[in-house]
Nucleic acid binder design. Structure first.
Lengths: 190, 190
DNA sequence: TTGATCATTAGACTGCCGTCCACTAACTAC
DNA sequence: GTAGTTAGTGGACGGCAGTCTAATGATCAA
């Protein structure tokens, strides 16, 4: 598939990377709400329309900018280590929480934005929410296979409980640290 | 205390009730985002400033309007029934979920708004979030006292897990029904 | 070269929230 | 009564996100 040369003026890739870089920097510096689109395009040196050619909203741009970083942070836990699933889950949560120390405020803003824009909610859910949910359910299922977790437990509900716990803390600006991760795991496997 | 006559022109109570009634109706009809302040004040027949004399933002007004309704819906579970705590918790969650069928979308919008306005977050947390969280922790503590729940479990963490589960479902537009309530309780007491 | 197609630019424009202002209305204290 | 204080009215205003337009630029196909 493809090999087809696209017709018309090609999109300027530098503009995209500049926009993402500026957006990520400004959002981390000032916070999502305080960064205006005008400020972003000015510092990136492009026109307003150029931004909206690639992303539907400010939230889409910031999501993509953060997403590239996040994938390097919170990758899947190494599957083949000698550790048990409980330790794997704990490490996975701890790594997520560490990343949230940097981008937690931005993520809060994106969750808020996703409640206000149905289209953005879809892509946010597909790119951010679902993948993480699936990692946890897979981990829990593996724990069941290994006999670490009773086969009678409902893995989907457990996953909702675990994810919900840190969403709840995040949105209520509670503490998200290794201690909380340990407690979550302890209650899950209790 | 009081008996002191306040000085100056007294606030028109009708304006407040009209604003709350109109806001609640419009928000339920059209959804929070689609209702503009201009529409609310026009239908309530008051000036813009009158609204902002009583509430800081649209979110504050809607919160209060919904809050009055919610208190009639999701009151504390009757403490002295013969039921066990597990059943109490289940009934409590089911009643919350029923109310969310009506105002769930509005609550989602308010949660979003609370992420974008620190002052509103404070009052939202104090009026809405904390009271419910305390009801659940109290219920869980009681379950420990009655021997229904192991005394080794961390009640605060469990409460975060339970609340988080339905926040997570709510914000991701998942299904919130009696079945989910039962599953939550089952996993909590597992 | 010429025409078609898509990207970029600068800027005007709409609709929104929340603020501000000048004026008027209602009430208390004296 | 009159002065002081607070609330309500109507409308202007500023700042924001996102849309739209007209002109220019870059690339491919014939």
């Amino acid at each position: 598939m493809s090999g087809k040369k696209p017709i018309g003026r090609p999109a300027n890739q530098d503009a995209s990377t500049a926009l993402k870089a500026v957006a990520l920097r400004l959002v981390r510096e000032l916070g999502y709400e305080k960064v205006s689109v005008s400020e972003i395009i000015e510092q990136a040196g492009v026109a307003r329309q150029t931004l909206y050619n690639r992303w539907n909203t400010k939230a889409d741009l910031v999501l993509e900018a953060v997403f590239e970083q996040t994938n390097t942070y919170a990758a899947e836990p190494s599957w083949d280590g000698a550790e048990d699933c409980r330790t794997l889950l704990e490490g996975f949560l701890i790594r997520i929480f560490e990343h949230l120390r940097i981008d937690g405020d931005t993520l809060r803003a994106l969750i808020a934005a996703s409640q206000q824009d149905a289209k953005f909610h879809k892509s946010f859910h597909a790119n951010f929410v679902l993948p993480r949910e699936e990692m946890i359910t897979a981990l829990l299922r593996r724990a069941q296979d290994h006999g670490e977790l009773s086969p009678g437990r409902n893995v989907e509900t457990l996953s909702a409980l675990i994810h919900g716990a840190f969403w709840y803390r995040l949105l209520n600006r509670g503490v998200l640290d290794a201690g909380f991760a340990k407690e979550i795991v302890a209650e899950t496997f209790a």
